[in-house]
């Protein structure tokens, strides 16, 4: 395995925050029918950390991630990416923030079908009109093992290869933070493991910050820290997780 060069830009002393949620609540509906998707959530995401967010369905983990990424608004509290309070940004500014400072990896449908893998990878930078760092790009592509497939369209790639393209895209512009929503949900165990490995390496060797929503304890075990959500609240944290400790943590939520 090659060692990736650390990026000079974003590696921070640990303790610098990549993103935070401060007293975040998200309420659907009103009065008697009000539903608290998120209820007074406080959580920080330090730079250079790999965090997993877990919880049963309805726990608000996806809602939290959407709010952190600026895709959804909060009813109360603040969301910060770096030092920027997202509620102060217009829709246009939020879009640009996503383009320049946030990376996304979804469970499926990550890629634009009419673009090649290469074009998908450089898409956010192309949209910004910024020329990508070719050396960095080549390294990322080589690392995920896609060098011979970059000219292909998504329809010509396997599911695992498509996810690797998605990971490359997220890494290529070296964003402040990457959000991954069940990135291995559609993949078999071996392929999924490879993807998670890339993600962990990106964090360890490049100082990338990644926040991953998952329901799979095995996937969560790749992270540095697991945040547990239930009924819209943070109910627990686990550092240096292993599949077993994660599993126990989840079981405890059920009680």
């Amino acid at each position: 395995m090659t060692v990736l060069d650390p990026s000079p830009a974003r590696v921070g002393a640990s303790g610098l925050r990549a993103a935070s949620a401060l007293g975040v609540s998200k309420i659907h509906g009103r009065g008697d029918t009000a539903v608290h998707a998120l209820d007074d959530v406080h959580v920080d995401f330090a730079e250079g950390q790999f965090t997993a967010i877990m919880g049963p369905s309805g726990s608000g983990k996806s809602t939290l991630m959407h709010c952190l990424a600026g895709l959804d608004t909060v009813s109360a509290g603040q969301v910060l990416i770096g030092d920027t309070d997202l509620s102060t940004l217009s829709e246009q500014q939020l879009t640009l923030l996503r383009r320049d400072q946030v990376g996304f990896i979804f469970q499926a449908f990550n890629l634009i079908p009419t673009l090649t893998a290469q074009e998908n990878i450089t898409l956010p930078m192309d949209l910004a009109g910024v020329k990508p760092d070719q050396g960095w790009l080549d390294k990322v592509i080589a690392t995920v093992g896609l060098a011979d497939r970059v000219a292909h369209r998504p329809s010509e790639l396997s599911g695992g290869q498509q996810q690797r393209v998605a990971v490359s895209r997220a890494l290529a512009s070296r964003p402040r933070i990457i959000f991954a929503d069940e990135p291995t949900g559609n993949l078999d165990t071996a392929t999924g493991g490879e993807i998670l490995d890339f993600m962990r390496r990106a964090v360890r060797e490049m100082g990338q910050t990644i926040v991953m929503v998952t329901h799979d304890p095995a996937a969560a075990s790749y992270s540095d820290r697991v945040v547990f959500l239930a009924d819209g609240r943070v109910v627990g944290e686990l550092c240096e997780p292993t599949p077993d400790t994660v599993f126990d943590g989840l079981k405890a939520l059920g009680n």
């Binding site: 990424a69 895709l71 879009t95 449908f109 634009i112 949209l127 895209r169």
Partner: peptide, 16 residues
């Protein structure tokens, strides 16, 4: 719709 959502998520502006 989903594809357009993806483009907007990774940073394509409304105008674009």
């Amino acid at each position: 719709t989903r594809e357009l959502g993806l483009l907007r998520a990774v940073g394509m502006t409304r105008r674009q």
